[in-house]
Amino acid sequence: MTATADRTAPRRPSAARLGLHRATVELKTFFRERDAVVFTFAMPAVILTLLGSIFDGVYPGSDVTSAQYLAPSMIAAGVASATFINLGTGIATDRDDGTLRRLRGAPMPPSAYFIGKILMALVVTVGETVLLLGVAVVGFDLSLPTDPTRWLTFGWVFLLGATACALVGIAASSLARSARSAGAVMNLPYLVLAFISGVFYTPVGQLPEPLVTAGSLFPLKWMAQGFRSVFLPDSILPQEVVPSWEHGRIALVLAAWCIGGMALCLTTFRWQGRRGR
């Protein structure tokens, strides 16, 4: 094969187009896989429904019910599930079952794989958020804000939070030794974080201080706080750790996790399983 023949040969499709094809395959695979749909997609909605129904009462000085307080935090947990757990277990499985190896054997630009994964995670995350909002609005009378600045806040918290969790999930996928262990490896830190970030344990201001300090190191606490600032009135602020929504700090911590997560991905991502090389 000569250089001339290479030039006249039909061109390979672009990474962007292949990324779209990958996203189609990823979405089909995700929604046909019962485990993924049940554990990654339905679980946060089930937890919101259960915890929201168990606890009742209204926070003093406000008209916010326990379930309404829980709902925005569960949306943050849902975003984390649809990004961190979804990508972490998904990529660990791809590494274990030969998906990555097959793709590396095909003329696929590596970026196409990540475009496919990210588009898939985006669709799942948006679906998850809509599902949880639906449960909260229909089941627990959460009212959606009408003020556009609140939706703007929702937008950047969602974007930064989802991106940070997605990148950390991609990096964490390398910790799992096999597809079978991936679920446990990803779910343990997720559940611990959900507790110490004041998602399952409400309100966050009631958590023991060492746990709050530990939770404050990670993005979930800040994403949950950001979503509460969107959906809850300021009259609930006394229940927070500090009586302020701290938007500046939320943006700072989430952005830092995006940068750190990206650095982790670039330094730790492996195409091969541990058996390889």
């Binding site: 695979t29 046909r32 097959r102």
Partner: peptide, 14 residues
């Protein structure tokens, strides 16, 4: 080139 590996277990849901 084309590759047929001995232990592919992927693509199960497609």
């Amino acid at each position: 080139i084309g590759i047929v590996t001995q232990d592919g277990a992927d693509l199960t849901e497609l």
